[in-house]
Simulated scan of single mutants.
Amino acid sequence: MKPSMMESLLGLLRIRVKRGVNLAVRDLNSSDPYVVVKMGKQKLKTRVIYNDVNPEWNEDLTLSVTDPNLKVLLTVYDHDTFTKDDKMGDAEFEIKPYINALTMHLQDLPCGTIVTTVQPSRDNCLAEGSRIIWSDGKLIQEIVLRLKHVECGEVEVQLQWIDLPGSKGL
């Protein structure tokens, strides 16, 4: 990584794409979903799960965070062999509440303590309240996203922070 990049780097955000629930059918009786995660110029994707509208990815995607105000855009696609992959909905979420909780330096909390809860609103894609929890010496955020621009579907993700030696830090 370039030194200028390290100076502006706050740390790494690990997004665990856990699973999809009741995703839209785009093939004959099912779909072959995968998830693309974008933040700024970064773009990562999960593996394809074949013939499953309730896929379990449990896959970690790691993004470099330089700007806590950037939103994360998550898009689900149906993998097709001979035609363009079909879009199966998208959702976006802010990492700012999570970053704010990280800056509280909460080392001595009991495991399982809920630090804050982000409520669903018109401005986000949350399907339910998203809790930021202190667990095993780390701050994690559990998020259930309701997909937009599609008839049905939710995706569950978990956020976790990775501090980097030499980064600007929080």
Score class of each variant (00 low, 15 high):
Glu128Cys: 07
Lys45Pro: 00
Thr66Lys: 00
Gly169Thr: 02
Leu74His: 11
Leu10Asn: 01
Leu147Asn: 07
Val157Met: 12
His79Pro: 00
Met88Cys: 13
Ala101Ser: 15
Pro120Met: 08
Asp52Gly: 04
Asp136Ala: 14
Thr81Ala: 15
Lys138Pro: 01
Met88Lys: 15
Gly112Asn: 09
Leu102Gly: 00
Thr81His: 10
Thr113Ile: 06
Ala127Met: 07
Ser31Ile: 03
Asp32Ala: 05
Thr62Lys: 11
Met1Tyr: 04
Lys45Asn: 10
Met104Asp: 05
Lys43Trp: 02
Gly137Trp: 09
Pro33Gln: 11
Gln141Met: 14
Val21Asn: 13
Glu142Arg: 12
Ala101Phe: 02
Val144Leu: 14
Gly129Asn: 09
Val17Arg: 05
Val76Cys: 13
Ile99Asp: 00
Lys87Ala: 14
Arg122Ala: 15
Tyr50Ile: 12
Tyr34Met: 08
Ile95Gly: 02
Gln160Gly: 02
Glu156Trp: 09
Arg146Gly: 14
Gly129Pro: 08
Leu159Ala: 05
Ser130Asn: 09
Ile15Lys: 00
Thr116Gln: 09
Val36Pro: 05
Lys138Asn: 14
Pro97Leu: 06
Ser121Met: 08
Gln141Ala: 12
Met104His: 05
Arg146Gln: 14
Leu139Ala: 03
Gln107Gly: 03
Gly166Met: 06
Pro120His: 10
Arg131Cys: 07
Ile143Glu: 01
Glu56Pro: 01
Lys148Gln: 12
Met39Ala: 02
Glu92Tyr: 12
Asp67Ser: 13
Val157Gln: 10
Lys18Ala: 08
Cys125His: 11
Val65Gln: 01
Val36Met: 12
Arg47Ser: 15
Asp136Gln: 12
Met88Pro: 06
Asp27Pro: 02
Val21Thr: 15
Lys18Phe: 02
Glu7Gly: 00
Ser167Tyr: 00
Ile133Leu: 06
Val37Ala: 10
Lys71Phe: 13
Arg16Tyr: 06
Asp78Ile: 05
Asp80Gly: 10
Phe82Met: 10
Asp32Lys: 04
Pro68Thr: 00
Gln42Ala: 09
Ser64Trp: 03
Leu126Ile: 12
Pro110His: 10
Gln141Trp: 04
Ile49Lys: 13
Pro33Met: 11
Lys148Ser: 14
Asn100Tyr: 03
Val76Pro: 04
Lys148Leu: 13
Asp85Cys: 08
Ile95Asn: 01
Gly112Pro: 07
Ser8Gly: 02
Val72Met: 10
Gly166His: 06
Leu102Val: 02
Asp80Phe: 07
Asp163Ser: 15
Lys84Leu: 09
Asp80Asn: 13
Glu156Ser: 12
